[in-house]
Design a protein around this nucleic acid. Structure first.
Lengths: 343, 343
DNA sequence: TTGAAAGCGCTAACAT
DNA sequence: ATGTTAGCGCTTTCAA
């Protein structure tokens, strides 16, 4: 492990026989007039010395890091991994490097990343917030794009899926196939407001149909594999669950698939005894048994749009806030019964 | 987006009525003796002013960033995502924040991250190198742990799976079930040396068994979904492939599963007409049709160990190099025929 | 086109 | 325990 010698522009300048200003001019991209000859000399010296620009020093002067942080709640969920990687192309084309932060649905970890951002390490942020604290985001004082639909975030750029519409697609489909006792599994993290979109839509939907919300059918848990196991357990431990639940609408595919697995393992025939519908359409959704019916989100478009908006915001902090919402799309597979057994 | 005012320790010092050294002492963790009273004053001033430490400035002095970069070749592959997230706990416990870099098997992207590292942005690196250029890694001059078995990296800490043994587990199993014409699908990236372990083991195995390597059965491609589609196409386009291939050993589960899907879609009965074995045992492996027989890697242990070794290296750069190899474990499912149809 | 010089915000001797 | 002071390596006026 070759100990990094501190070779600064001073050494380079000395070797090249120019001043450090000249060296600085050639190493900092915004090439302030340098003669070809001087440039050659400098580059030769840089090569010879193996000089690398010290990021802390240049950042201290310019207040720029040329790094973007993309924060996702669960990097092991391919939906988020895909979104993160998709932002990369656009951002790199804009001259930035991108690194990913994984909050694992933890507020504490999120706060840790916020701290990094506040201390000036990143020129921009793309994030899906675990909490509902929009002020904390604004307080970081750096260009930010929110991932997911946050209608209440009036003054922050947002890109995501039209959750309300997507939720209705799922619920409508369940209803059309005769399911009446519909359970919902949403995230246990965040505040009431954070939950509101899926939950509110669920409430609205049921009341439109004239059915009361059964508190026992509202499950708040981690939208993860563990959450799926819990959910299955909760369902099965509900006395006479067959008579109380027709279908469950899951907040994402990860928990939906895990639930299917756990239920199947317990001998339940998903797709006839009970129906499950997910959200996202991750690759694994096509492979569960039964294959998962779900609402597809356009993750590639989402990632691309997020990169675009962030770049635009960075180059013009004063531009009007923009929100880009993509529609969801029903993907019919086998986890929802053709006809609910109770109707 | 509140424009971040440059509130420095000077403003804080002024408001608190102390010197900036005192302020520095309270904000920098290594608490150099400060009276409780002064500390209170300072903290109040910090609160009031909304001061945040400037990372570039402190980094410039201390040459420390308290960030670790974990570089993986494909964040959408849950194997890598899982490893990355697993390193997080240990590293954060050590006081570091971790960000993930996704190279997407691209040398160019890897070089980009190397550049970040060289410029002093990270105190340590955990990485799976896309290339074979160990010198480039050493030249970064920062503590590094390699992911994956790199026997030739004598002087870099390494943690991974015993690839040679894991490969033999797969090959032995195939052989025991009567498969003789075994194809291999490995990575197209990197140099000859990089490929050598799986490939060399494959060559050794075959020669031990007295069978010659058939060049047509050695596929070099992206270990990704796209690679799987290509592989299936290549297999099917081989004249009389049924008579030429009994089984294929895939470099990872992602390509194995994609191959199964593509083959199945073409009407091939995987698990009888042809056998497929993978490597990693990602969650999706249990859900393909047929379910994938594979060699499990211990990704949680790997991530944990990587974090440990890196922390140890950082705190004692002079310690002897350590290599930790975990064994692979056969997971028998349905993608390998009970008995090869040709034997 | 080039150089001299003044900091960016912080930390770390050193002195008190 | 606290203040003074000298930079860390770079960028950026300002002059020449």
């Amino acid at each position: 492990m070759a100990r990094k010698q501190s070779i600064s522009i001073i050494e380079v300048a000395r070797l090249a026989g120019v001043s450090k200003s000249t060296v600085s001019r050639v190493v900092s991209d915004r090439g302030g007039s340098v003669s070809p000859k001087a440039e050659g000399l400098v580059n030769k010296a840089i090569e010879e010395l193996g000089y690398t620009r010290n990021h802390h020093a240049s950042g201290l002067r310019t207040q720029r890091s040329w790094m973007i942080l993309v924060m996702v709640p669960d990097i092991a969920n391919s939906f988020w991994a895909e979104i993160a990687r998709t932002t990369q192309d656009g951002l790199e084309a804009g001259g930035y490097s991108v690194v990913i932060g994984n909050t694992d649905w933890s507020e504490q970890r999120q706060e840790r990343y916020y701290g990094l951002a506040r201390s000036g390490r990143f020129d921009g942020l793309i994030l899906n917030s675990v909490t509902d604290d929009l002020d904390a985001i604004k307080d970081m004082g750096i260009p930010t794009v929110l991932l997911g639909e946050r209608v209440e975030a009036q003054d922050i750029d947002t890109v995501g899926t039209d959750t309300r519409a997507a939720t209705r697609i799922a619920l409508d489909f369940l209803w059309a196939r005769g399911h009446r006792r519909i359970a919902i599994a949403t995230n246990e993290h965040g505040s009431e407001r954070f939950l509101s979109l899926r939950r509110r839509t669920y409430g609205e939907f049921l009341s439109e149909k004239g059915v009361a919300v059964d508190r026992d059918l509202v499950f708040r848990l981690n939208l993860s594999e563990e959450g799926g196991k819990e959910l299955a357990k909760s369902i099965l431990s509900l006395p006479r669950w067959q008579e109380r639940i027709d279908a469950v609408f899951c907040g994402n595919d990860v928990i939906a698939i895990a639930t299917i697995d756990a239920l199947a393992a317990a001998g339940v025939a998903v797709g006839s005894d009970i129906s499950i519908i997910g959200m996202d359409d991750i690759p694994a959704a096509a492979h569960s048994r039964p294959a998962l019916t779900t609402v597809r989100k356009m993750r590639t478009l989402t990632g691309k749009a997020a990169a675009e908006l962030l770049l635009a915001r960075i180059s013009d902090p004063g531009r009007p806030t923009e929100k880009r919402l993509f529609p969801g799309e029903l993907v019919t597979r086998a986890s929802v019964a053709e006809r609910c057994i109770h109707t």
